[in-house]
Design a binder for these strands. Sequence first.
DNA 1: TGTCCGATTGGT
DNA 2: CCAATCGGACAG
Length: 213
Amino acid sequence: MLSSLQDQAADTSTSKRKRLPREFFTRRDVLLVARELLGQVLVVPARDGARIAGMIVETEAYRGPADRASHAYGGRRTRRTETMYRVGGTAYVYFVYGMYYQFNVVTNVEDIPHAVLIRALEPVEGITVMRKRRQAHADHNLASGPGKLCIALGIDRGLDGADLLGDRVWIEAGRSVRPASIGVGPRVGIDYAGEWVAKPWRFWIRDNVHVSR
DNA sequence: TGTCCGATTGGT
DNA sequence: CCAATCGGACAG
């Protein structure tokens, strides 16, 4: 089973992949979108026309305004959170801890601030560039965290608000992941969120070495 | 304007 | 376990 997973993952680097359509992102269930983003491929074009890409192996759903862990909790609408109120299929990129960027995918229709944090990628294309940016770390440590993947792909605040159906960053169809291969558990780094801390809204591909932690 | 703190990471 | 490092949110 493990080998078939790897074969399929390898397949995504050679076959033609289709870009995910608007309708994938505008669905109302952010938990469903978070699960189905596993196995899809996040792509950022490099300067010379090359591509930097990684298969999504870990995600977290944020369901504002009810979700206390969300930046949009209570309907909070500020310059930073405004992006989350845009239509599904928009990139929400923010800066934290004074040094890291975090890449999110906005879901649902306009004015409903739901989003999926992309927490880890398995490198697929542009691995040499990723190694350079991440200072020659082992491959399983190139993009195995939300801050790390932004460094590896060169993502910064300039991509906040970018349309995922545009040409600055997008997501292509990779492989579907069987429910049995999906790990489910509580989100991390949100100890301030009270009862919402325990919600099992973190998803990952089981046995994949590129998952964080 | 001042203070508090974070959807993390890497080193001790 | 802890420091790094600075923008965002909010109180005053």
